[in-house]
Every structure is written in structure tokens, then in C-alpha cells.
Design a protein around this nucleic acid. Structure first.
Length: 134
RNA sequence: CCAGACGGUCGGAUGACCGCUCUUCGGUCCCUGAGGCCGGAGGGAGGAAAGUCCGGGCUCCACGGAAACACGGUGCCGGCUAACCGCCGGCGGGGGCGACCCCAGGGAAAGUGCCACAGAAAGCAAACCGCCGGCCGGUCCCGGGUAUUCCCUCCGGGCCGAACGGCAAGGGUGAAAGGGUGCGGUAAGAGCGCACCGCGUCGCCGGCAACGGCGAUGGCAGGGUAAACCCCACCGGGAGCAAGACCGAAUAGGGGUGGCGGAGCCGGCGAACCCGAUCCAUCAGGGCGGGGGCGGCGGCGGGCGCGUUUCCGCGUUGCCGCCCGGGUUGGUCGCGAGAGGCGUUCGGUAACGGACGUCCCAGAGGAAUGGUCAUCCUUCGGGAUUGCCGACAGUCGGCAGUAUCGGAGACAGAACCCGGCUUACAGACCGUCUGGCCUC
RNA sequence: GAUCCCGUAGCUCAGCUGGUAGAGCACUUGACUUUUAAUCAAGUGGCCCUGGGUUCGAAUCCCAGCGGGAUCA
């Protein structure tokens, strides 16, 4: 126990407000994969985590275009699981990330989804080596 | 065995690893709080959670009331239910060989409207073609009388025409034409008469009733449309958990400007300003009286709002345009023990109700209830080895089918809760019944 | 979550007291003009969102569904 369990587990923060999503989309840093679209934005004075919140925050978007509530929920869950597996060990802190689901989110294999996510982080210059979480 | 009708149940299973959220227990940290973290135990989507089409609970508003009107809804009868446009049973009509299914199914002699085109006529009884009758006329034809013959004239018949009268069978139009079919009847016809069917009225019987059965009688009167207005009976105050309450924050929810209108009456208070007398004072100024009337207060009245009207009650009261600024994004409650689920039993044809026992069964908030893998199950496609059949025999074709490979597993995600309706849905299973075929 | 509105020609809309659906723009053809534009004349174009019902007859009335849009703290 190091006394800072929050950082030890590197829990992901979440984006909740519409202006935060718009700010990330407005940063113009994005990369499209068959299963999702990845957007990223470095923190600044206008949008940054609250004190005590994680240094890495994630937002998920699934529009009505890809299907009904069942399809949107499944897509969001797969993206959340993939992000929980990859981001805490490899994504550079100090950023907000947004994953947008698309129609391929449900048909893409899970291993491919993880690989796509790593590739996306490298393309946007956010990759850092680190131990994979247990 | 095949085809079908109705009702009901389920709607992938198991395991491993990694996660989310709620409840609870224990530990730990401090910034002591409804806190963070760690660990244990337990719970965690549906029959439709959907569409938001009805009905309620709950909350706020109008809650002072009432009556009438208006508006909306429902509509065979009886029952069930907290209630309903729901459900159950029955009746009537329609469909099916049948099990069974479908139907907004009150009133058209309370009144109004509409029924295009066509047709003579669309609602009130009338008559276009037509059928019939006698009379009159035409003198076209035939027969007869008179006469030798013809003309003329007379009688009868046919034909044609006009008006009159009788009829509604037939033709034709239409979705629909004032009962239908048949026989008699007649100048021709007609409920004119008769039989059957339909319809109306009356009586009796059965039924709580809708309605049904039987008999008598009338002699056809009363076309359709009320998912046209309407009439009758019954029901309904409005809005909705983004309801609403608390906490936190804030001086407050406003401010500036332009235009229009000059914003009722009365009473009292009354700033700026003006006037007067001249009191105090060196001046500034203060005091007194009058005018003035910003802005408040009270009363009456008016306008507007509470669906309309009446009596009454409450609230509000310059209007409009443009510009600026603030707030609303926060937290907690509401928020799950309920018209609750399951089982047994009793009453009831049933919907449903009673009693007893037992259980506690989701509470998220960019929105949890999952992600990945493996095995099994179901199903689809390919398919060796193998079996059967046929041709033929070194082989080929068909059917069945194992190992095995690949794919798919529907419709769909709680958002305050409940009862229904409607819509979507791969497949599996159970029960009852109907029609047909085969065997005993 | 709740409330409300609308689906008609290629586009924008009428028609909604039931009786075979119209306007403007667009398109095609012709005239005028050296040609184009403009103008004039004529013409084409519709399962009236879908399904069922009432009615002799439905874009219109009733019921159910599908699609689109707006508003509410």
C-alpha cells in the first residue's frame, strides 16, 4: 500500500458534459479504425480534470446511426472493456480521449480491437511503454 | 400419420479470468462527512422493459362553491375490476365441412343535412318508353249492307294520331326505385286474393336482461347514411416525476434605451420645483402658508386571467420594439413492501374473489446489470471413412449418416410505479379440440 | 421522460363541410430571337406515407402502424 491507491490502479476518469466532448472534437486530433474513431485533446486551462480526478479521462459516444439502444449499449461496453485493457498502461496522461462507436464495433474481433487501439495511440503520439495491467 | 384451431410455458446452459453498480459486514485513512480505499457476503432487465394508445396510484395547481351550457370520451345484455376504449360469460349478425374466428353492434315514426354522374323520378310519391280502355278524328286497308259497277253514305274490324282515364307487370339508369317468389285474378294490372319467406303490431311462454320460441293479426305503412350534425344514457377539473420538496449560491430577478398612450375617481401622506409673506440668519440655508404633483397607501370602479354565463371569490394591472446582464448545467430526497410474486385450498361456467402459508425480488444517471475465452445444446451449409439401392462390375449416380470444419442463436435495454391494449419476435415444449387417411 | 404537429407532382404548398386532385417553380416541345436568357402557348408528371374499417363511393371520416419535426428543467 503506497497510500495513493487511486493512482496505483490508474483508474480512468470519465467525460460527462457536452462542452467537454465538443472541446475534444474541436482539437482535430483523431484517427479512424474499422471498429471506432479515436479523438484526443491535451488538457489546458479551460478543460482539465478536477482535483483528485484521474489524469486520463475517457468519453464514449454511440450515435443513433449505428442502431437501437441494444446495439449502442453493446458497442459502448466493448469499447469500454478494450479501453480498460489498453489505456491505463500505455496512454500518456494529461489528455482527454473520446471513442466514437461505428457499425464495425460489433463485428470486429476483440484482439483486433485492442491492436487498433494501440495503433491509434501511436498515430496520435500518445503511446508510452509500460507494464500491462494484471 | 398429415393438415388445422385454441390456450399456456420458456425464450440458450455451464465454467474460468478481468470489470461495473447497489445493499450489508469488517478493516484502514484522514479533510471527521450523507467521505475515500481494501476485503468478505448477497442482489442486479423484459414478455414485450418498446409504441406512449387508454385507465389508475402519486405530486402540484385551480382546491371558496354550485347550477346550467359547452367540450371530449364510451355505446347489444349481464358480470369482474381501484379504474378503463380492458377482461369473462351470453345474445344478434357474418365467415368456415368443422374445431373456431371476426364485428364502434343504442336511436333513422324528435328534427336537420347529404345521396355526385346516370335516370322520368333519390324521398313525396310520381310516370319517360310502355300496357289497357272507351270516345273523337284521319279515311290508309279489309269485309258486309245499299247498288249493274264506281263514287258517296251506313255498320264492323285493322292501322295511325290527339287529348282523357286506368296500371306499375315489363324495358332502361343507378350502390339504392315504395316487400320477394309462385299461383290465381284482370281490359291491362296491382297484397286485389292465396301459399311460403321477410316486415310491423299484439298476446302468451322461457330468460335478471340483450333476446329467443309459439300463436294471432295487419296487408306493406317506415330507402340508406349517426366512424354527417344530432338525440338518449353514462363518465370526465387541469397538468404532469423535466410533477414536487429540501440544501447550497445570490441584493434581486432584473437593468438600459426608443416609440405610443397620457395611465379612471375619491381620501389622506407627500420629494424636486415655483410663488407669497416676511420669521431666524452676515451668506449658504432653515421654518411657515399656497401651488405643484414623482412615488407609495387605502377605498370604489374598470380592464385582463381562472373554459363560457350568472351571483360570488381570488390574482394582476401601462403597452410594444430593440439592446445588455444574470440565473437555469449542481447535490439530496421523491425512489420502491406493492391493487406484489409463488404455492395450497374454497366459492364461481369463467374473468375474478376469499382464506392460509411462504418469499423480499434491479435502482442507473454521457446512464450500471458486462467484456473475453472454452465446452455443451439447437439449427444451417460443406463433408472423408461407412451402410443401403440401381446401372454396371478398375467405376458412376441417389439416399441416409458419423468423425470433423465454418457460420448463426430472434425481437429487443428498466429511467416514478401499477392494470390493460397495440406492435415486433428465431426457435423449443406442454395441454385441449377439429377434419382426413391407415392399422387393429 | 412528457406534450404537440406534419407526411399530397422532382421541390414548396393548397385541397380536409366525402363524389375521379390543383397552383407556383422545375422538365419537355413549339413560337419569338443570329444564338442564349427572358416572355408567350401547349404538354408530361400522383398506388394523396402504409394497412384495416365505415360508406354505393375515402386524399378527406374512424382505428392501428411507419417516418420526420418542434417544445418543456
Amino acid at each position: 500500500m503506497d497510500g495513493r491507491p487511486t493512482l496505483r490502479r490508474r483508474k480512468l476518469g470519465r467525460l460527462k458534459r457536452r462542452p467537454e466532448f465538443l472541446a475534444v472534437a474541436g482539437a482535430k486530433r483523431k484517427w479512424a479504425a474499422p471498429g471506432f474513431i479515436l479523438q484526443a485533446r491535451r488538457h489546458d486551462d479551460r478543460f482539465h480534470p478536477a482535483p483528485g480526478e484521474s489524469e486520463l479521462r475517457l468519453g464514449l459516444t454511440a450515435t443513433k446511426k449505428i442502431g437501437g439502444a441494444v446495439v449502442r449499449n453493446r458497442a459502448r461496453r466493448r469499447l469500454r472493456a478494450a479501453a480498460a485493457a489498453v489505456l491505463p498502461g500505455h496512454a500518456a496522461p494529461g489528455h482527454d480521449l473520446v471513442l466514437i462507436a461505428r457499425s464495425g464495433t460489433l463485428t470486429r474481433g476483440y484482439a483486433d480491437l485492442l491492436a487498433d487501439l494501440a495503433t491509434g495511440l501511436r498515430r496520435l503520439g500518445l503511446w508510452q511503454d509500460g507494464a500491462d495491467p494484471p
